[in-house]
């Protein structure tokens, strides 16, 4: 049987008349870095929200770590506690940078000395140790992004969801975060990233899914997709002729 960490079967979601995603099925395996790419408006965000239990699909089902999502037995909460979410827009909660990073640990009842230690460790790793005491709403875009990342990682999730996670970063910090993702998956974590950066997909991802107009156009290992793009638009993307 597959080791599928995420198993999405025939998922569709419409908002009024607009069909955001239609009949998408994909599996994400443990330990891999899975990229979801597509032009803007393709439905990537909706797909991601469906996969992270934030948006119940109209049709289809999602299984996460062997549990059924969107069932009423409280499994959604268990699922959410195993996933780390780094949204595209780094959203800071009220308080300091430290408060933000510490939050997932505090809600898991980690004792405060332990919290402090782990927050310091991860902040140092991401180069934001000096701004821990700063009001989170007042930091720069790049600092917020790294804080958001640290917050998603600090409690050692099983799956990391990343949406355009190096958008606001200079190359040095981008490289640090990418190496963190690699390190994370090498230790058994799974990463799902939504991106439009061709080179990042090549650098990082193991498998990718291409979503266009709400449908899954192609899914497979990176070199397979690059070698045999399913249609003209995909070909233009993988050759770099067209940017998404």
């Amino acid at each position: 049987m597959t080791d599928a960490v995420i198993d999405c079967q025939g998922c569709s979601k419409a908002f009024g008349n607009k069909h955001a995603i239609t009949d998408i099925s994909l599996k994400v395996q443990k330990g891999e870095i899975f990229a979801i790419i597509g032009p803007s408006g393709a439905g990537k965000t909706t797909l991601l929200r469906v996969l992270t239990t934030l948006e119940p699909p109209d049709k289809g089902r999602v299984r996460f770590l062997g549990m059924n999502a969107y069932s009423d037995n409280g499994s959604d909460q268990k699922i959410r506690r195993s996933l780390g979410y780094v949204p595209q827009k780094a959203t800071m909660l009220a308080g300091t940078v430290e408060d933000n990073i510490a939050l997932p640990l505090k809600t898991r009842g980690v004792p405060s000395t332990e919290v402090r230690k782990r927050v310091d460790e991860i902040a140092e790793r991401f180069g934001i140790l000096e701004i821990l005491r700063k009001n989170a709403s007042k930091v720069s875009g790049g600092e917020a992004q790294r804080t958001s990342f640290a917050r998603a990682l600090v409690f050692e999730p099983k799956v990391l969801f990343l949406v355009e996670f190096i958008a606001n970063l200079d190359p040095a910090n981008a490289e640090i975060l990418e190496s963190v993702v690699r390190d994370f998956t090498s230790k058994g974590g799974t990463a799902v990233m939504v991106t439009h950066k061709l080179l990042q997909v090549k650098r990082l991802a193991d498998r990718m899914a291409i979503v266009m107009e709400g449908r899954l156009v192609q899914v497979g290992k990176i070199k397979d997709v690059f070698a045999k793009p399913k249609n003209e638009l995909v070909r233009k993307f993988v050759t770099g002729e067209m940017a998404w």
Binding site: S112, D120, L129, E130, L132, R133
Partner: peptide, 13 residues
């Protein structure tokens, strides 16, 4: 640097 930050801390509040 870390010592300075610790000194500025006044608990969680």
């Amino acid at each position: 640097m870390r010592n300075l930050r610790d000194m500025n801390r006044s608990g969680a509040l």
